[in-house]
Amino acid sequence: MNFAATLGLALPIGIGLAAIGSGIGLGFMGRGAMEAMGRQPEALPKIQVAMIIGFGFIEALTIYAFVTMFFLQGKIQ
C-alpha cells in the first residue's frame, strides 16, 4: 500500500469522521437552542445569534478537514 493509496483511502474517511463529530455537535447545539426558544420565545433573537455563532464554530471543524482534503487532493495520483 503506497502513499497515494493510503491518502486516497484516508481523506474521505477523515472527512466522514469530521462530519460525524460536527453532526453530533450541531445536533446538541440545535436541540439546546430549540428548547431554549420553546421555553422563552421572547429571547428568540439572542438565542438565534448565539446559535449561529456556535454553528460557525462547530462547522469550522468539518471545514478544516475539507480544506485539508483539498490541499492533499493533488497528491493522489
Partner: peptide, 13 residues
C-alpha cells in the same frame, strides 16, 4: 486562521 479557513472552505465547497 480559523476565520479565513472557515470562509474559504464554505464558499469553495
Amino acid at each position: 486562521v480559523s476565520l479565513s479557513c472557515r470562509l474559504f472552505g464554505n464558499i469553495f465547497g
